[in-house]
Design a protein around this nucleic acid. Structure first.
Lengths: 346, 346
DNA sequence: TTGAAAGCGCTACCAG
DNA sequence: CTGGTAGCGCTTTCAA
């Protein structure tokens, strides 16, 4: 691999001129630049990464720490990793992957040896050991997700509370007075940071709007189609006229199948809305209104904050909550007047 | 961050002694070493990554290229990434992630700027543009998966042909004379490298053993429980007494559910064996015999080959096929007699 | 058993 | 607009 000296020699200039021509940090005569570019082309020159790290003050690498617990939802997680990598590249950064035990140990390591310029934290748990670590190291760190103790941290996430409140609002505004939330598998409420936020917001906002609220999980340790269906059935039998889905794609699909089997039409007989889904709810057997979790939004913002932290203005610590967006697909209507219900209304 | 000079000063030795004490590449007096280690501790010293890259001839980073197509099966893929990262760390290597378009462009880039010592290729397509690229660059490259044109490449993979043949053998040996293969979704046969190998081997080896063989997909563009079930039903009605499953976990689960609903017991009424599954087939509703795809096996070997390529003996180009293993879980038995079968099927 | 010093290839400052 | 050069922090000869 050619180095900068060979390029300089071939172009008949000094190495500093080559460096400046490539970085653009100093004006270079058009003609000189052309000669340099020609030499670069011919020699297939690419500045050595290690030398740049040492001489410059940037490695152009971000670490991405992700414990990858057994219960991590793979498709969603993959979307986040992909979105992060793409966003990072747009800012000329590569992603170094720290998984498993390395999510913690490696985070300390790369902060100490200066391998990365900043660290992005994925797969955030409510009680996350990386929080304490982030406070100890000097490498800028951005959390994608919100740990319980987030004092002094930079965190990015969808505003799940607002998203959930919005879902409740939409249903309440349509006239529903009894709604149900199908949440995640039970373990998710301990392992992950956002499910509790959705559930709490659901209860709180339903009370605020004066609508009856029921809650059911979509599984125990793992997502279960059966458990999800059963929860939905129970709610409907208890009088719920609308469902808020905050669960895995397969659980949502399964619930829609159950509704169909029971001859319940969406939205005529029952309204459905999805909260925090990172897949396309319009592609379900019945398209479902969605207040989605968009990995791109969180990850792009996280990357931008990391880049900022390296530039001039280090971002203020604190939460960056991304405003929810609402995408209708015609799965919400006023509640049907069921025969049993009209009877009891009198 | 402290540097090697400060450590040397604190320990009262020269920087070269510090370097050697840490790398162990030269004997250091026990006492001297102690003083150095104390200084390292106290200062929290960690050798600068960029400087090591430049001075040494290793970056201690492997690139992992993964296009992450839309149809990539997320859980399986995640298992491969995880296994690769863990294996790499055991050899003191970090993983740089190249996804999406960067899977190709980034591969060229990091090879040119010397950011990585070797490249690991995941998510290999039958016609993969990274094949040509691998031939052009000088950075050692190991494919995890086998592209059609693999001349001169180092490739690692499960021996899918042998695995499939083994499955056919087990069933034939048990006395089955009509068996069916439920394969992947149709698109997988164009996008991915191993599904065609399984199918071809199935047909070829079934013919060799003189057993009737049927084949069905488990979906079109995406895996579909319905399509998978239908394929299984058709095969059984056509007289198959055993099924070979080479499909997603949900498809396998769904097929087992279908069998149960029809009152077909495994293995009394029908035998089932799983080929190339990277999940635990013993955890299905009915435990299923498995000839699994073990990501750890492939990824560890791939990492070892990459490490070797940097050491003394560069590995010979060629395929490294990992011998299949067979894990019985009691889902295979001799075929039921015809009259019983037709009775069961109704 | 240890030290001195020459780079590794680049960036960025200081001159001109 | 361009060149010379001092490091960046480490590894690794070469000497002692």
């Amino acid at each position: 691999m050619a180095n900068i000296n060979e390029v300089a020699a071939a172009a008949g200039v000094s190495i500093s001129t080559v460096s400046y021509a490539l970085s653009g940090k100093r004006p270079v005569a058009a003609d000189t630049r052309r000669r340099i570019e020609a030499a670069v082309q011919e020699l297939g020159y690419s500045p050595n990464a290690g030398a740049r790290m040492l001489a410059g003050r940037r490695t152009q690498i971000f670490a991405l720490t992700e414990p990858l617990r057994k219960d991590t939802h793979a498709p969603t997680h993959m979307a986040f990793v992909l979105a992060t990598a793409v966003a990072a590249r747009r800012h000329d950064y590569d992603i170094l992957l720290l998984t498993d035990e390395e999510a913690h140990a490696g985070m300390r390591r790369v902060a100490a040896n200066g391998l990365v310029d900043a660290i992005l934290v994925l797969d955030v748990a409510p009680e996350d050991p990386r929080v304490e670590l982030a406070r100890q190291i000097s490498t800028p760190t951005v959390f994608i997700g919100i740990p319980n103790d987030n004092d002094g941290l930079v965190c990015v996430d969808l505003d799940f509370e607002a998203a959930t409140a919005k879902a409740v609002d939409v249903l309440a505004d349509a006239g529903h007075t009894s709604i149900g939330l199908i949440g995640q598998a039970e373990t998710a409420y301990e392992m992950s940071n956002f499910p509790p936020r959705v559930r709490a917001s659901f209860w709180a906002h339903a009370a605020e709007r004066g609508v009856a609220a029921a809650y059911g999980t979509s599984g125990g340790k793992r997502v279960s189609r059966t458990v999800a269906r059963a929860a939905a059935v129970r709610m409907i039998e208890d009088g719920a006229t609308a469902l808020v889905l905050h669960c895995a794609e397969e659980a949502q699909a399964s619930i829609l199948a159950e509704l169909a089997e029971r001859g319940l039409r969406v939205p005529d007989d029952i309204s459905v809305i999805s909260v925090g889904a990172s897949f396309d709810t319009a592609a379900l057997s019945t398209p479902v209104d969605s207040i989605p979790l968009l990995p791109e939004a969180s990850c792009e913002l996280a990357v931008e904050l990391a880049v900022q932290a390296l530039d001039d203005a280090a971002p203020e610590p604190g939460l960056r909550l991304i405003p929810p967006t609402y995408t209708p697909h015609g799965s919400i209507a006023p509640p049907a007047v069921r025969s049993e219900m009209s009877a009891s209304v009198r």
